[in-house]
């Protein structure tokens, strides 16, 4: 018995010493392995996505992740996006941050079984729980409603409200449209909706033409691309129509400052990028991220754009 006890004690001491030496030598690398995350946005890189990317880069730096940033040649091409995702998946990528190029129905077909093999985080637009592990976005319907309330307050007696949508069918576009039209309908405002598909050549000219056709004095665009086009359409003649829209970029801010754009509802693009990568890394490391991660938004006009709060939202600084 005593012999057994001594043997056990010696073994225990030996094991203890080995554990100590292992730990003293540094132990496992802190934070685990480097997380590789592929970001696939829904179009070419523009100034809006540049802001989002800053947040993503900061998150990758903070969390020890490595980012691969993929952009599409054709704006909102679900097929191209699916192709890129498939290629990354074949290359061993285990986590994706995706800005959906289309609605859930199309994305389901495009993504196939990707969600079973890799972590998917939807960025800027929410996706169904079967498609994405988490969705990081502002409440798009609330953004549309906020825009609608602003328009109702200032424009309800002006004839013709033209709503420009890209027709991509993404949750962000549809929810903003639904939120906006529900408020306008409730207020009895007349509006028309025109689709300007992504990638349309001379988008600004198309918007101007629609405005002329519809005799619209108020134009509303629901994403940064169409809003920039709408702003450009009336930059030479800002009195022709008042432009409202969602999202922000330096170009949009410039148009806002010039009073070409009257008002925007903007979400924190930097934070959108940061939280998307953070959620993907968390999922990749086995922690359950929230299914919906909300990002704050604000209604911004030329008069309040340089308040401290809005300055931070519109002009994020970072990497």
């Amino acid at each position: 018995m005593q012999r057994l006890l001594i043997t056990l004690t010696v073994l225990l001491f030996a094991a203890y010493t080995c554990v100590f030496l292992y730990m003293f030598d540094g132990g496992p690398p802190s934070g685990g392995q480097v997380a590789e995350v592929s970001v696939v946005i829904n179009g070419p890189l523009n100034k809006y996505w540049d802001q989002v990317k800053r947040g993503m880069d900061q998150a990758a730096s903070d969390l020890g992740a490595e980012l691969v940033f993929d952009t599409l040649v054709t704006d909102h091409s679900a097929a191209e996006q699916g192709e890129l995702i498939g290629r990354e998946l074949d290359g061993g990528t285990k986590a994706f941050v995706i800005a959906p190029a289309a609605g859930d129905t199309v994305m389901k077909r495009v993504l196939g079984g990707v969600s079973e093999k890799a972590v998917i985080v939807a960025c800027g637009s929410r996706m169904g729980s079967g498609l994405a592990d988490a969705s990081v976005s502002a409440d798009n319907r609330a953004m549309g409603e906020a825009l609608g309330e602003r328009i109702v307050a200032y424009e309800r007696f002006r004839p013709g409200i033209l709503i420009i949508t890209d027709g991509s069918g993404t949750e962000s576009e549809l929810s903003r449209l639904l939120g906006l039209t529900s408020v306008l309908s409730r207020a009895g405002a007349r509006y028309s909706v025109r689709v300007v598909p992504p990638g349309t050549r001379d988008m600004a000219g198309r918007v101007a033409a629609y405005a002329l056709t519809e005799n619209a004095r108020t134009v509303v665009a629901l994403n940064s691309v169409t809003l920039t086009a709408a702003g450009e359409a009336f930059s030479a003649n800002p009195h022709r129509a008042r432009v409202y829209g969602a999202d922000s970029s330096p170009d949009i801010v410039s148009l806002l400052e010039k009073r070409v754009i009257t008002c925007v509802v903007a979400q924190n693009a930097y934070l959108l990028g940061y939280l998307s990568v953070e959620s993907a890394v968390a999922e990749l490391r086995g922690k359950r991220a929230d299914a919906v991660v909300p990002v704050g938004c604000a209604v911004i006009t030329a008069n309040n754009m340089y308040t401290k709060e809005h300055e931070r939202l519109l002009f994020p600084f970072g990497r």
Binding site: N268, Y270, L271, E309, R312, P316, F317
Partner: peptide, 11 residues
């Protein structure tokens, strides 16, 4: 602050 944006956003 290196995380100034996150601090402003309450993150």
């Amino acid at each position: 602050h290196p995380k100034q944006q996150n601090i402003y956003a309450g993150q």
